[in-house]
Simulated assay, not measured.
Amino acid sequence: MNTLNHPVGALLRQWRQRRRLSQLDLACEADISTRHLSFVETGRAQPSRDMLLHLAERLDIPLRERNRLLTAAGYAPLYSQHGLDDPALAAARAAIEQLLKAHEPYPALTIDRQWNLLAANAAVAPFLVGLPAELLGPPLNVLRVSLHPDGLAPRIVNLAQWRAYLLMRLQHDIGRSGDPQLLALQEELLGYPAPAERVEAVAESVLMPLQFRTERGVLSLISTITVFGTPNDVTLAELALETFFPADAASAQLLRALAAEG
Score class of each variant (00 low, 15 high):
202 V>F: 04
159 L>V: 05
180 P>A: 08
86 D>Q: 05
216 R>E: 13
164 A>E: 07
203 A>K: 11
19 R>S: 06
118 L>I: 12
176 R>A: 11
68 R>V: 07
151 G>D: 01
256 R>I: 02
52 L>P: 00
254 L>R: 06
106 Y>M: 09
217 G>P: 12
148 H>Y: 09
43 G>N: 10
185 L>G: 02
181 Q>F: 07
202 V>I: 14
227 V>F: 04
256 R>K: 14
238 E>L: 03
18 R>M: 13
67 N>G: 01
144 R>D: 01
153 A>N: 05
163 R>H: 09
242 E>G: 03
238 E>H: 06
82 H>D: 06
6 H>N: 14
246 P>W: 05
123 A>T: 07
139 P>F: 04
95 A>F: 10
154 P>L: 08
33 S>I: 08
160 A>P: 06
35 R>Y: 10
80 S>Y: 11
261 E>T: 05
72 A>S: 14
19 R>M: 10
91 A>C: 07
233 D>P: 05
134 E>F: 15
228 F>P: 03
105 P>R: 11
198 R>S: 13
107 P>I: 08
206 V>W: 13
31 D>G: 07
173 D>G: 01
46 Q>A: 13
166 L>V: 05
219 L>M: 06
189 L>V: 03
82 H>T: 07
175 G>P: 10
219 L>F: 07
43 G>Q: 08
148 H>P: 08
90 A>Q: 14
28 C>G: 05
29 E>P: 02
111 I>H: 00
172 H>G: 06
71 T>K: 10
76 A>F: 06
123 A>C: 11
10 A>Q: 15
164 A>G: 10
118 L>T: 01
221 L>F: 04
192 Y>L: 03
86 D>T: 03
182 L>R: 01
242 E>S: 05
155 R>G: 00
195 P>M: 05
97 E>H: 12
169 R>G: 01
26 L>V: 11
38 S>A: 15
122 A>H: 15
84 L>G: 01
199 V>D: 11
38 S>E: 04
95 A>K: 07
255 L>C: 09
21 L>R: 13
150 D>R: 15
196 A>K: 12
46 Q>N: 11
60 D>Y: 04
151 G>R: 00
97 E>W: 04
18 R>H: 10
54 H>E: 12
239 L>H: 02
217 G>S: 12
88 A>W: 04
197 E>D: 15
14 Q>V: 08
172 H>P: 01
33 S>T: 15
136 L>C: 03
204 E>Y: 10
236 L>V: 15
25 D>E: 08
110 T>C: 05
108 A>D: 01
91 A>H: 09
34 T>F: 06
117 L>Q: 02
33 S>E: 07
168 M>D: 13
63 L>N: 02
61 I>E: 03
16 R>W: 04
214 T>D: 10
90 A>V: 11
21 L>E: 10
143 L>Q: 04
144 R>M: 02
111 I>R: 00
219 L>E: 00
